[in-house]
């Protein structure tokens, strides 16, 4: 079975992903947290990433979070992509999903 390297350029983390395994699942198996984990079903948009280099297959994803024009540009959900080659990815800032984390404290 083929094994591919996934490098997260935002965090510097890298991990291996088996053929047929989703990028998010491979990351979780290695106890890494470099991509946010949500529903793991292509529905919530939490694990959105930008694929900078490499090829992959896609499972079904919510069109709200991964519209076809974004998928074309490699903006996909990590829970629903399956590498065909080594991948370089980067994190995409969460949209409305995590307002608490974007709040800055004044003191």
């Amino acid at each position: 079975m083929a094994v591919f390297q996934v490098v997260n350029r935002t965090t510097g983390d890298h991990f291996t992903c088996q053929e047929g395994q989703s990028v998010l699942k491979a990351m979780e198996q290695r106890d890494l947290k470099c991509v946010p984990v949500g529903c793991r079903g292509g529905g919530c948009g939490f694990c959105k990433i930008q694929v900078l280099e490499g090829h992959f297959e896609c499972g079904k994803m919510s069109k709200r979070h991964a519209p076809p024009e974004a998928v074309e540009k490699g903006e996909v959900l990590a829970c629903r992509i399956y590498p065909l080659t080594d991948l370089i990815i980067e994190c995409v800032p969460l949209p409305e999903a995590a307002p608490a984390k974007q709040t800055t404290k004044n003191r």
């Binding site: 984990v37 949500g38 529903c39 529905g43 919530c44 939490f46 919510s62 999903a97 995590a98 608490a100 984390k101």
Partner: peptide
């Protein structure tokens, strides 16, 4: 965090 933010 997921309980408050992960929704469909």
């Amino acid at each position: 965090e997921r309980f408050l933010t992960v929704l469909t």
